[in-house]
């Protein structure tokens, strides 16, 4: 008999996060397309509609796991509900989207279920009956392949690693609502709020010129501004490392925890390409990358790759621009 797989849906305010469907795709890969092995769980308060929507999309059995303490996400309450639910018989795999919610509670769930825990999984490799899970290490310079040794394995799924499962017409799953007891725990979520750093300029920009730690020092930002000036409407972006170093405010941060962007042009300078950054620019139409390191991972997603030192390349680019267009466009 095949291993049962549970997928924990990610949702808030009655909206389903599409990473849920990516996790379902991973589940389907793990059970070779056998949907009857999969169960989707929607923890929350009055989430039957959400469960119906997920089941309607995927054709997979879905459970609304309800308690009023689950109205707003809280690691202890979520874990308590899931532990109660799984106590009878824990599935072989519990798949959770690797989001700021998922990676928060997954390790606790694993402790409570005496399960192994493998996070930020982006690939499943199977051979000789063993299933190995691949995740990035050392900033993605290397990948690690990990095998679980426990009956139950808690896995978080890296956003963007699987294509979201599209609508499955003609299939239907059973939707069930279950009330579950929840231990309130010692944390109380007061609210989710927007951070003070807003990225509106980034979200609406057609062109984003973005700097990474590879620019070397804060002073080199002036070169990035030079590039931004070449475009009539551009916004300045950057990687998390640039904000952490204090070179730019977090309002410029592009990535999953910053702004998710979809400009016509994303012009990346000195960005190594951390997965959380790359996932945030998936919607970009054209990606240009300038980096002196030919092994920069950003080149694996760029449409046009320029292996040059920015301090030399950018002045040349600006010079050629002036030759061609006479002056700055902005």
């Amino acid at each position: 008999m095949r291993n049962k797989i549970a997928v924990i849906a990610q949702h808030a305010d009655n909206r389903i996060d599409p990473v849920t469907y990516e996790a379902v795709s991973c589940a389907l890969e793990l059970c070779a397309g056998e949907t009857s092995c999969i169960q989707i769980i929607v923890p929350g308060d009055r989430v039957e509609k959400v469960a119906q929507e997920i089941s309607g999309e995927t054709g997979i059995d879905t459970i609304a796991l309800e308690n009023e303490l689950l109205k707003i996400y809280n690691a202890e309450a979520y874990t308590s509900a899931l532990v109660t639910f799984f106590r009878q018989r824990a599935p072989g795999y519990i798949l959770i989207p690797h989001t700021s919610v998922g990676y928060d509670f997954a390790p606790l769930l694993a402790i409570k279920l005496e399960a192994s825990c493998i996070t930020a999984v982006k690939q499943v490799n199977g051979s000789d009956g063993t299933t190995a899970f691949v995740h990035e290490v050392f900033d993605g310079r290397l990948y690690a392949e990990v095998v679980s040794k426990t009956k139950t394995t808690v896995i978080t799924i890296q956003p963007g690693a699987w294509e979201p499962l599209g609508r499955q017409p003609g299939k239907s799953g059973i939707v069930e609502t279950r009330n579950v007891t929840v231990n309130p725990g010692k944390t109380r979520t007061i609210a989710f709020r927007q951070s003070d750093y807003q990225g509106a300029a980034l979200a609406n920009s057609e062109v984003i010129v973005s700097a990474g730690r590879g620019i070397g020092k804060k002073e080199n930002l002036s070169l990035i501004y030079e590039v931004a000036k070449l475009f009539p409407r551009s916004a300045l972006g950057c990687s998390r490392a640039v904000c952490d170093a204090g070179w730019l405010e977090y309002s410029h941060q592009v990535g999953i925890t910053g702004s998710t962007v979809s400009p016509k042009l994303y012009f990346a300078i000195g960005i190594s390409g951390a997965v959380q950054h790359i996932t945030g620019i998936k919607g970009a139409q054209v990606i240009v990358a300038v980096n002196s390191d030919p092994a920069a991972r950003f080149f694996t997603i760029a449409d046009y790759c320029i292996v040059e030192d920015l301090t030399q390349f950018i002045p040349t680019l600006v010079e050629e621009f002036k030759k061609k267009y006479g002056s700055f466009s902005k």
Binding site: A110, E114, A115, S116, C117, I118, A132, V137, G140, R141, L142, Y143, A144, E145, V146, V147, S148, K149, T150, T153, I287, V288, P294, A295, A296, R297, F299, T300, I301, A302, D303, Y304, C305, I306, V307, E308, Q312, F313, T316, L317, E319, E320
Partner: peptide, 30 residues
């Protein structure tokens, strides 16, 4: 509860075009 069985390099396979030539030629091409 889990074991790392392999550590490997994903390799860098550029997806797009790598601009060739001198610095100036690359700037012009871009």
């Amino acid at each position: 509860r889990e074991t790392e069985v392999r550590l490997f390099s994903p390799g860098i396979k550029p997806k797009g075009t790598i601009l060739q030539g001198t610095r100036r030629e690359k700037a012009v091409q871009l």
